[in-house]
Structures are given as C-alpha cells and as structure tokens.
Amino acid sequence: MNVQHEFQHRHYAHCESGVVTSLLSHQGLSLSEPMVFGLAGGLTFAYLPFIKINGMPLLSYRMYPRSIIGGIQRRLGVKFQSKTYRSQAEAMAELDRFIASGRAVGLQTSAYWLPYFPPEMRFQFNMHNLIVFGKENGEFLVSDPVADHVVRILPEDLQKARFAKGTMAPHGYLYYPTVVPAAIDLKKTIPLAIRKTVNMMLHAPLIFGLRGIFFMADRIENLQGRKDIRYIKLFLGHIVRMQEEIGTGGGGFRFMYAAFLQEAADVLQSQALREASLKMTDAGDQWRQFALACAKAIKNREGAIDLAAIAGLLRTCGNVEKEVYLLLKKMA
C-alpha cells in the first residue's frame, strides 16, 4: 500500500502543541503554536517530590500530557475523536484504514521505541506525540513536530512505540479533529485562558505554580549539607533537562507563553499584554541564567557548588514571573 496525501509538515517547538496545531491547520483552522499553547492553558510549574522518575522527583513546566488536546476543545469548540485500544493488531489495522481513507492522525508514543530519535534521547518516555499521514514502501510517513523534516517508521516499530508499558502508557492512543469551526472569537477566549493560567500560577498550593518554584529553590538550598556531590549534580541536571525538554529555548515554555501574550496583545490591542509579554521574556531569560549556572556547577570537577547562589537565581525566576501574573491579573 502506498498512500501519500497532501500534508504539510511543519516544525514546532513542542510535541503536543505541535501536533494539535498541525492537525487543526490541516483541517483549515490556522493558529500559531504559541496561540494553541496559550489558549489551552499549557503553562504551569509543578514539583512532585513523591513521584520519582529514575530516582528523581517529577517536575513539569507545562500542563500534564493530553491537557492541550483537552484544553483546546474546551476553549475553541473544536472536537477531537480519540481512542485507545486493547488489541494491538486492531490498532494497527485501524491506523491503516485511516491512512487509506486520507486521514492524518495524532498518536501518543514512547520515545524509547522511535528509531529515528537520536540514541541519546531514547528514554522510557511515553508521552511523545506525532502525526502519521501516509504510507510508502511499507513504512509510515511521520510528521514529528519536533523534527525538522518528515521521518519514516516501520509498522512493527510504531506498534511497539504505541504499546509501550509504564507510566502514562499510551495504549495505542490515537486522535484526530472531527469538528473544526471555520472561525473563532479570539477576543472572547484569550482573557478566559489567561485568567485560568494566572489563577493557577498565583494561587495553586505548595508545590504548584509560583509556590512550586520557591519550594524547589528551598529544596536546592537544603542540599547544602549533603556530602554526595554526585547526587547534587544529577539533581541539578535533572531540573535543567526537564526545563529544556524539547524546544523551550531554556525558558521552560516561558518564551512560548511570551509569544502567545504578544499575539494576544495584537488581537486585543492591549498595551498591558504587550508589557506582560516583555516581562515573560525576561522570566525566560532568567530561567536560562539558572540553567547555565546549573550546567557550570555540573561541569566544575572540583570545588564546592554554591547552592545558595543557584537557589537565588531560581527565586529570581519566580519573582519575575510573579510580576507577570500580577500584571495579567489586573487586566483580565
């Protein structure tokens, strides 16, 4: 079977917002990735010390997986059909039928099983999203939003990637838009989306939002007494790796949100939003400074690590972000 349909591959910063943006634009609703990310309320911060990934606490700079698909449906009146499968054979057969009928679909996959990923990136990470849009010479044509060109994958590899076990196992999760409005009222939806993100960042308890950022800063500072330099370095490295997770530019999705705020400012003709966008850019730059300091500490083979200084940089990130949210709160 050779099926190749018109599908415009585009390069995006992040997998889930990229897949959603791409599928919507394929259906005729053209929005930017930052707009999709912002409207879906994709920005967050969370530090979950009780959930461990390879011995390290789970932390996130964006909302949990599948939340962009969910958020965009709530905000835009878009409808996605989505399903998981019990039978792997049925999941692959149905994928073939979708492709044959000319439908591009989003899939949740595990990075561990994607042969086109760089070997260094093939971790047990079950939350990678991609689009399959065709089949040629026995291989699926994949529009992976974080890759700069179209890639290919053998059905048996894709099957393994769709049915990896573990945390957030995909179970063959497949989705595509069924209802896409021709036009949407951004003027109405943008303030709602911003309000939700602002409330969460300002008022979420303990380990979420701004409190989560300051909590993590305390955690870093508390490592001061630990003899185990190896652990300290791995811990700092883990934070930075989560922050850099594909295409954030070191800003933990802050630059993407700043881009959203700028676009929102144009739509709403709002000076306050323009100011907030600049401030958020500032926050992203602060996050980069923090990441740089962590990397330097890791590279430094001798000498003590100044954890208080690193924690201080992190608190600066939190403080700058706080100004953004207070600014947004006033206008929303």
Binding site: E120, D148, A259, S277
Partner: peptide, 18 residues
C-alpha cells in the same frame, strides 16, 4: 545529543516580534 536534528524555539526578531 541532537543527532543532527534542529529544534525550533521562539525568540524575538529585530522588529520585536516573536
């Protein structure tokens, strides 16, 4: 570690636009 791929990110151009 990127294996020859390029990543996309958002930044401000000379006109101040993301």
């Amino acid at each position: 570690t990127l294996g020859g791929y390029r990543k996309l990110l958002y930044a401000i151009d000379e006109n101040g636009h993301y």
